[in-house]
């Protein structure tokens, strides 16, 4: 078994997603994609662990996560479109109106 390699790949994917959110300052779509990447990596980890532990709940969770991710992306893209319609830009930098 190459359990640790799979695990490492999943975690690296997750970290890449996180970095994509944190470091990205220009594009809102990249942020959405990073979130998708994070959800994907989590799904992957669930699947790996489900196989390793020989447990079905991980796969059930994965299916649910996929559903949620699809819904979330749909809503996110809808917000993005609405936002673009008002502001004319989708830069993350310009999302700073609600300052503390």
């Amino acid at each position: 078994m190459m359990y640790y390699e799979y695990l490492t790949v999943g975690i690296i994917l997750f970290i890449l997603g996180v970095l994509g959110i944190v470091l990205n300052r220009s594009n809102l779509i990249i942020m959405l994609m990073s979130i998708e990447l994070m959800l994907l990596s989590i799904s992957l980890l669930f699947l790996i662990n489900s196989i390793v532990l020989d447990n079905l709940i991980g796969q059930i969770f994965t299916i649910m996560i996929l559903t949620v991710a699809a819904a979330e992306t749909a809503i996110g893209l809808a917000i993005l479109v609405a936002y673009y319609r008002i502001r004319g830009t989708i830069a993350v930098r310009s999302l700073n109106i609600l300052r503390g």
Partner: peptide, 8 residues
């Protein structure tokens, strides 16, 4: 000031 308005 920590709440800078920057999402990232």
């Amino acid at each position: 000031n920590l709440q800078s308005g920057m999402v990232f």
